[in-house]
Computed example of a mutant assay.
Amino acid sequence: MELTRLRPLLEHPGPMATVYLENRPPGEDAGTQSRLRWQAVRERLEADGATLPALAALDSALRQDPVGEIQADGRVLVACDDGVLLDEHWDASLGSGDAGYWSDAPQLDRYVREALTAVRVLVAVTDQQGARVRQEILGELVTDGTEPAAEQQFSAAGSTVEGSGGGRVHKARRGYLSHKHNQRRADEVVHQNAADVAEHLAVAAGRFRPDALVLAGTVQGRTAVRAELPEHLARISVDADRGGVQDDAAEAALAEQIDEIAEALRSRRLDADTDAFELARSQGLTVRGPGAVADAARQGAVSTVVLGHEAADGPTGDALAASSACGAEVKLADLPEGDYADGRRGIAAVLRFAVPTA
């Protein structure tokens, strides 16, 4: 994840309030519970010195929610005297807790950590006539304007789900008049339809930047489309052999397999990023803790900010802001938390070059 997408927020003049409200199972009193939870966080912010204009902006933003939406979806907000700077659903797991911070820079490590679990999946439910294509973002509520699970009816002609091959697809039975000619024509139709689907997927992937392309639907349809994929999509393609879109049960089976594919991708990504951190650590090119990361970033040395699964011991806003300014990216890894009990848990950095830090 590139920190530059958050740079305008990270570099906005402070001080500012950062608020996290976790998602919880909604009940009959969801509206009351949401108000009470916000009131408790508000009181903590006020005690920490939050200004009335910033608190009023948060009050206004949260009052506009439908009853129970915060309870069901969770929320992250950042506000200063100028108004609300960030207002997003926050798909945090139950138990992460509500929190409020008043500081010079927004405290976005929890928000970024959640976003790093996201897997972007382009799904194509294929048959020999064409495909239904949709985009899904699993593990993150969208913050870049892309609609999750936005389904498109694909067609080269733009009006039906069929590809542009036309004609009949099923091969002729033996004994059928002009058997070889009709069989060859059927093969040509399947090939053209698959090529149209593959072309559409290449365009969609260029906009959506998926981590995986899931090919679902009939075996014949998947096989034909896979054969037409450009190399960069073939490398990230995965077959889903369960379910489809024909009924609710098929949709549920497909969704379950897509979740399994996404979880496997998360695990591989975490392992790779952890290995990369450990390699840099063995070379003396890492620092640990919010202060050291911020210090190294101000010297232009931070290549990658690395967040652990545990929350950092102290505020991370300055570290993320300084790292954003020097063009760093951010990743999630299994940090060796037990080795760092002196206030350096939860955040680290891989360096471009070694620098002295406090």
Rank of each mutant, 00 (worst) to 15 (best):
R110Q: 12
A150H: 14
G165D: 11
A131S: 08
T126N: 09
Q135F: 05
E151T: 15
T117G: 11
R134V: 02
T117D: 11
T143G: 03
T126A: 12
A157D: 14
G167A: 01
S178F: 07
V123F: 00
V189R: 06
T146K: 11
T126S: 02
E140I: 03
G158C: 05
R132I: 07
R120T: 03
Q129A: 13
V125F: 03
G139S: 00
R120I: 01
G130T: 03
E114I: 05
V119W: 00
Q192H: 14
R120M: 04
G167N: 03
A156C: 14
V133T: 01
A172N: 04
G167C: 02
Q128T: 13
L141K: 06
Y111I: 05
E140T: 02
H179F: 14
H179L: 09
Q183S: 13
T126Y: 04
G167F: 01
A118P: 07
R174M: 08
A172T: 04
A157S: 14
D144A: 08
T126D: 04
A124D: 05
D109L: 06
A118V: 02
S159N: 13
A156D: 10
P106G: 13
V112W: 09
R120S: 05
Y111K: 08
I137C: 04
L108F: 12
Q129P: 01
